[in-house]
Nucleic acid binder design. Sequence first.
DNA 1: CAGGATCCACACAGATACTG
DNA 2: CAGTATCTGTGTGGATCCTG
Lengths: 124, 124
Amino acid sequence: MPLKMRRNLSPKPPEPCMLTECMQVIAGAWAPNVIWSLRAGRRRFSELKADIPPVSSKVLSARLSELEERGVLSRHVRPTSPPSVEYELTELGQELIPALEAIVQVGHKLKLMRAHELDSEAAE
Amino acid sequence: MPLKMRRNLSPKPPEPCMLTECMQVIAGAWAPNVIWSLRAGRRRFSELKADIPPVSSKVLSARLSELEERGVLSRHVRPTSPPSVEYELTELGQELIPALEAIVQVGHKLKLMRAHELDSEAAE
DNA sequence: CAGGATCCACACAGATACTG
DNA sequence: CAGTATCTGTGTGGATCCTG
């Protein structure tokens, strides 16, 4: 499930829209899901991977790096015998949660609307 | 500026994450920008194209169709001599505005943080 | 366990040209 | 003006394999 989980960057030019630039923060496949999974608190790499089954290690790793670099989340390495790394949203990262929640809400409502429309059609 | 303005779909599989599904609503290159441009009210095709310079007619058209189909915006054709079409956010579409604003805010803050960090480094 | 390296496919945006 | 059709390039994610 990736073919369309692309980012929202802009390679070369004038970048007239600030929004585009800001959208980069959550750009990249699965990035929103990562943030979503971290809502409740810090999680380990494997936990995140389990939360988002279809994501591959490579991509998850890449996304985590980007999000860390962008200041959305922080990485904590714990010196245990089997390596253990935890990720956590930064304060700024937490500000993204309401945004994602709003999107989910709208998505939900639209879904309900569609279901309702289908019902109406079926009734005829 | 498009190479990375891809959508956030998911082609085939199990789709375990509701978020992913909801994100589709604003999926596709420039989709957020379109919604952003329509914040203030209805706009015509050419106005939208002017608002978002780097977008091509083809892509803008595609995005508008998708957003309409998804119930985020509505299309009004006006029977004038030169064809004139206006687009407008639906009620649900308007609910996405706060979400985008939140993202922009975070993007902004992160930008400021970065600038600050660079200053600190430069000072040394 | 956490994640880096490779190789590959393909969906998507761009450019251009055309229509009513 | 508002779009559509076609062709092409490319970034990005998936799968797999491998390591400390």
